[in-house]
Design a binder for these strands. Sequence first.
DNA 1: ATCCCGAGGG
DNA 2: CCCTCTGGAT
Length: 215
Amino acid sequence: MTKKERFAFVISYFEQHAPNAETELMYDNPYQLLVAVILSAQCTDKRVNMTTPAIFERYPDVEALSTATFDELFPLIRSISYPNNKTKHLIGMAQMVIDDFHGDIPSTVPELIKLPGVGRKTANVITSVVHHQPNMAVDTHVFRVSARIGLTTNAKTPLQTELQLLKYIPKEKVHVAHHWLILHGRYICVARNPKCGECGLRPACKYYQQITKAQ
DNA sequence: ATCCCGAGGG
DNA sequence: CCCTCTGGAT
């Protein structure tokens, strides 16, 4: 099976059997999405969603967040990963948006990456979800699932995965493909003991071919 | 013990 | 390239 055929199978499969999410990041606007994605690093969506309502109530917009103090915000973030870093990042992000971007959340990857706490993955999520730009955010799920299936070969960094995926996924499908891979990784192609028995991608999956061949 | 929609710094 | 940050679920 060529790589092109593999991509075609995966895209076709997901178009007919789109995975549905049990929990997803909650947000009502770009500001809330940016905060939620910054908080989501090495943390489940469910846990992020437990913290964001209080944050959005206390800091309803980026200007309010820019005036927050560390001691005020920290307790609201205390129960998720890296609360120290994330508290500093959120306040720094809000201040930079106010000072350097006139209070508007930037809409391009190079601008977003300048914000504290915002790396390539987060920038790709914002531009993809909010502005429908054909950018592929590569998180731990997309990285693992793509490698297992064989959509990527020898990808050692998220950037390599991103570039290899963009080469074969039509631009208009990048956004939805990102979501497919995330959800597939979260519920089926999990890191430990992937549920190959429930996976419809078996005919196109390199990992499944290997483990069945080894029997 | 390993993983979760990573980022920043060396 | 590496390391550190660092809480909760499984």
